[in-house]
Amino acid sequence: MRTPDLDARTLVLGVAGVHVTVFALAGSLGHPTLYVVFAVASAGFLGLLAGRGAFGVAAALCGGTLLVALAYPLATLVTFTTPTAVLDALARPDVRRTLYVSVYGPLLATLLAGVLGVPLALLLRRGFAGQAAIEALVDLPLVVPHSVAGLAVLLAFGQNGAFPTLPVLGATPGLVLALAFVGAPYLVNGAREGFEAVDRDAERAARSLGASRFETFRRVTGPLAVRGVLSGAVLCWGRAVSEYGAVAVVAYNVAVFYPPAGERVQAMFGSVFVVHELDVNFQSAVAVAVLLLVVCVAVFLAVRALTRETGRWT
């Protein structure tokens, strides 16, 4: 029997349909405030229907206000432009190059952060002397201003830096290093939470049956922690996609191999391209922003779906 799930799904779809209708109506009347008020009030009403008392209603109102603050700007962005304008933007070669760099660069940064960060997350889960200092160092990029992070990466790894022969300024390696710098904390912390959720008794049981440390990790720890690792990777990729400050310093224009052209081309990272486009044509900038949003959300949802399925397999 799946009736409760079906009823819940029907309720969600019904509420979403009402919100879309009211949003469109408020926009057509030129009074978007009406929708904001409706959205917050409807959250409180749903909290009241849940029957959890005054505290439940207050919590629903607070949560509804936050959700409106998160969703309403994106809905406004998407409805500001037209499908024709978005398709026109997609037809531009420079926009297609931007989309490629905006997905390709963060994926490389996530791979780099994963190869280097997952073993560190495992060590942090097991504990060692000086762990508090290492944890603070891992989280430090979260509080460093983004332009400062870009400048730090440029000075550390650019010309006369640790790897003098590595192209950093305006190059793909510099872009990847900058994105990995800002995104790595999310991957390390997500992976560590995944490892910490693994039952140590299961690991001890595997060792007692003669499994080596590597076999225990491969057959027990790794599969049980993979969902946390993938969740951290999703957050790392999402953080990298949204980066602007560090990229603007290190790779405002980046030279990257572009498969459709079969050669290296100059391209801008997505967030940098949108800001640059604002100085040229506001309508075009919005269309490009919507296109980037659609691509990033599609990749994000696909990876999240993979994460859920992996959680079921494990």
Rank of each mutant, 00 (worst) to 15 (best):
A58P: 05
S147D: 00
E135P: 03
L87H: 09
R204L: 02
A206T: 02
W313M: 04
P173S: 03
L116C: 11
A171C: 03
V272L: 13
T81Y: 02
P173M: 01
R213V: 01
P185L: 05
G222T: 01
R126N: 04
A211C: 07
R2W: 13
D199H: 02
G161M: 00
F269A: 09
G270R: 08
Q266P: 00
F80K: 13
R52K: 14
V303H: 00
L13S: 10
Y100H: 14
A171D: 06
V299R: 00
S242V: 05
A129N: 07
V101P: 03
G56N: 11
N160P: 02
V138R: 10
P223A: 07
G56Y: 13
A58D: 01
V295A: 09
L108T: 08
A305Y: 09
V274D: 02
G105H: 09
R213D: 13
Y104V: 11
N281H: 11
V288Y: 05
A26H: 04
V103I: 15
D139E: 15
R97T: 13
L66F: 15
A261C: 11
L235S: 04
E215H: 04
T216N: 10
T76G: 12
E203P: 09
L112G: 04
A60Y: 07
A202L: 13
L278A: 10
P93K: 12
S242I: 01
V295S: 02
P164T: 04
A171H: 10
N160D: 14
A39H: 06
